[in-house]
Write a protein that binds this DNA or RNA. Structure first.
Lengths: 227, 227
DNA sequence: TTTTGGCATGTTGTATACAAAATGCAATAC
DNA sequence: GTATTGCATTTTGTATACAACATGCCAAAA
């Protein structure tokens, strides 16, 4: 029998707790900078402090928590500078994903992406922002999967989680949104043409635009005092 | 008083244990694939199982260990495929470091790098491989520091540690070694000229050469049955 | 001979108890 | 009134005990 099939999903308490906390952090329930009391949290999660502390270590490794000796864990609060740095790295990783994807992409992959693109354009036409974000993420994940580099995918995902903890809702004005959708069209075209250099370029520019939008939002929030 | 000075170095047992294990893994004392018995290791390190298990989580986050529920931890054994993937990502990260460094480099930085380059050429002339590796690493670290992106640096370092766990000593024949030294000269020239695109190109090619050398070594070791 | 079931042993997972450090507050000195 | 010291309390750090699971072996059955 093929041993790789049906791997029964098991999980330990540290992993389960980490997953739960990860969600709470990314959704913002646990706000950036919040200090995490071990006893309190362990009671709320229904686990003892030992597995909870292991969960802290997992999340610290993901860059979602910082731990100070004898002073506990707290949710990371990314500065605008940090966000800028993270986007620079993300851009480079996405660029690589594009270059690699070009060497491995199949016609079926392109069909899948074109279908997603159509969905995205529909969401755009209806000004459905949540749907747009969801499909956008699906497209980028797809591209990463096509690239077929697990280390790249892991690094990308981890960094993405950190940025999501920012809970950025970049002030996506009409012009920028139109531009983003157009860039997605260009991406798929470059991928279909197997033009790695062009795809890389588009992705890096695409990320740079996102970076700018987020940084502007962060600056506004700061001056306005909004969270 | 300036609070930023004299930060008393404190460390907890999990961090100390992780650091010790990291060294053992990278030096190869703990071989790839080795299973780590908690009780045994905790006695050897003189700590109880609780902090040791936290150390395991830290190292798993760094990609140096894998953990399976109820089946303990074992040292990661990178396949040739994994190494290829890691080098692809490293190349991209180094390329970014180059692009960023160009925008921030000072003349003093370039002087420092030129001094290191001179040291490297001396080591090369004397066929002093350990010194060459040491200086090589110093140069790349320096470039990363100039780039001034902590997230990039952290990602780079983590990935580098993983690759060092391979304990690759690529079969550096004379031609390749000459080539590598020449590439380093070109790097510094591109940096001095503030030519980001050129520097990026050199770095990506440089990493690609290293990748190939390592993959060849791995292939030989496999066919020869060495380690 | 091969397979299966059960048991003994070893190993990991989790909870808890105790130790050590940090924190907050009040009392005292200036 | 402010700063400082000492103490009580809270919180984190570590060790250990016990529970749950995995592993290897042997015997018994097919």
């Amino acid at each position: 029998m093929d041993g790789s099939t049906l791997p029964i999903a098991r999980s330990t308490l540290p992993e389960a707790a980490a997953e739960r906390l990860r969600t709470l952090i990314i959704e913002g329930t646990l706000a950036p900078g919040a200090r995490l009391n071990e006893r309190e949290l362990s009671e709320q999660l229904g686990v003892s402090r030992t597995p909870l502390r292991e969960a802290f270590r997992i999340l610290a490794g993901d860059g979602l928590l910082t731990q100070l000796p004898n002073r506990g864990a707290q949710v990371v609060a990314l500065s605008a500078e940090d966000a800028r740095h993270a986007f620079d790295v993300m851009g480079s990783l996405e660029g690589l994903a594009g270059e690699l994807a070009v060497t491995r992409v199949t016609d079926a992959d392109i069909e899948t992406l074109r279908a997603l693109q159509a969905e995205m354009e529909a969401a755009h036409a209806q000004r459905d922002l949540p749907a747009y974000y969801r499909i956008n993420r699906a497209i980028h994940d797809r591209l990463n999967a096509i690239a077929g580099n697990p280390i790249l995918t892991h690094t990308y995902r981890t960094l993405n989680a950190r940025l999501h903890a920012l809970r950025f809702r970049s002030n996506l004005n009409t012009a920028k949104w139109n531009q983003a959708v157009a860039e997605h069209r260009d991406m798929i075209a470059a991928l279909a043409a197997r033009d790695g250099a062009a795809l890389r370029d588009i992705l890096v520019r695409h990320l740079r635009a996102k970076q700018q939008a987020v940084l502007e939002t962060m600056k506004n929030e700061k001056t306005l005092g909004v969270i």
